[in-house]
Simulated scan of single mutants.
Amino acid sequence: MPRNHPSRHPARPTAARDPRHPGGAHELGQNLLVDSRVIDRVVGLVRDADRPLVEWAAGRGALTLPMARLGRPVEAVEIDPRSVDHLVRIAPGNVTVTRGDILRHTPPSASHDLVCNVPFHLTTPVLRRVVTLGGWRRAVLLTQWEVARKRAAVGGTTLLTAQWWPWYTFRLDRRVPAAAFRPRPSVDAGILVIDRRPQPLLPVTDADRYQRFTAAVFHGPGRGVRDVLARQGLPRGEVRRWARQHHVGPGTLPRDLSAGAWAEAFAIGR
């Protein structure tokens, strides 16, 4: 699958702070977005789809209000009661404010887009929850820079990405400097865009078996992925044919495989 990724070390622009958005509550791990250019970019990533919007960790509304101006229904989910009260006061009629924990909130089953400025200490559970939920078509997530890079397979695929690749695409949109948040975190962030594939590479009924397969390949013994697959009991002739088709050499590692290569390797032993 072709990938277009930005440079690993792009220039870091100075944040254009919007003074209307104060910093977040430190005890809740809130680093609120205050850079108007980043806000515009996040909103732009969900602008063209005519779907309702769900925003997790809405904070003080830096993203909520611009998304509301798109004219679509918005559900803003926030756990901090002070921020909830603020959102209720400022939200227009197409915004529903819900006080709740984003790890327990259940979005609508109908098609929608999901946006979240992910609290950094909740990154892993939020990502795992997002990929297991139905309904949403696009998820736009602000996460730590290194997490965004890894999930988008910049520099190699991680196990988590490989396990969900047949059903989703992962794309790194851009780097976001730490100065774009208040209070300022210790690391930069990145915008990670996850899209649900309209045509999955594998049936969803295969998910459990496929994910066990990818874990076994990532952690299995062998000198390269071809050797690992053969040791997993896949027919060597089929593995050689698969390797030629996907340009997999003797030293190719699991982290080097594309989404299509993973799906077809699984299909050999299915």
Rank of each mutant, 00 (worst) to 15 (best):
M1E: 07
M1C: 04
N4H: 06
N4A: 04
S7R: 14
H9Q: 12
P10N: 05
P10I: 12
A15N: 09
P22Y: 15
G24L: 03
E27K: 00
E27C: 02
N31W: 06
L33E: 00
I39H: 10
V43S: 00
L45S: 07
R47V: 13
D48R: 12
D50H: 11
L53W: 11
V54M: 06
E55F: 10
G59A: 02
A62R: 15
L65V: 09
R69T: 15
G71L: 12
P73E: 12
A76G: 02
V77R: 09
P81C: 00
H86W: 13
H86I: 03
L87I: 00
L87V: 01
V88I: 08
A91E: 10
P92N: 00
G93L: 04
V97S: 01
G100C: 03
G100E: 01
D101K: 05
R104L: 06
S109C: 07
S109W: 09
S111D: 11
D113K: 06
V115C: 03
N117R: 08
T123E: 08
T123Q: 04
T123W: 10
T124N: 12
V126Q: 01
R128F: 15
R129V: 06
R129K: 11
V131P: 02
W136M: 05
W136S: 02
A139D: 04
L141Q: 06
E146F: 11
E146Q: 04
V147Q: 07
V147K: 05
A148C: 09
R149V: 11
R149D: 10
K150I: 15
A152F: 13
G156N: 02
T157Q: 12
T157W: 13
T158E: 09
T158Y: 01
L160A: 08
T161M: 04
W165C: 08
W165L: 13
R171V: 06
L172G: 00
D173A: 05
R174K: 13
R175W: 15
P177S: 10
P183N: 10
S186C: 04
V187W: 00
D188Y: 12
D195A: 02
R197N: 12
P198S: 12
P200C: 15
L202D: 07
P203V: 15
P203M: 15
P203C: 11
Y210H: 03
R212K: 11
F213H: 04
F213D: 02
T214P: 01
A215H: 10
V217P: 05
H219G: 09
G220L: 15
V225A: 07
L229G: 02
R231V: 13
Q232K: 07
L234E: 03
P235M: 04
R236A: 06
G237M: 08
V239R: 02
R240C: 02
R241W: 14
W242I: 07
Q245L: 07
H247F: 13
P250C: 05
G251K: 14
T252Y: 09
L253G: 08
L253V: 14
L253E: 14
P254F: 15
L257T: 05
G260W: 13
G260R: 09
G260L: 08
A261M: 07
W262V: 07
E264F: 14
A265L: 06
F266T: 03
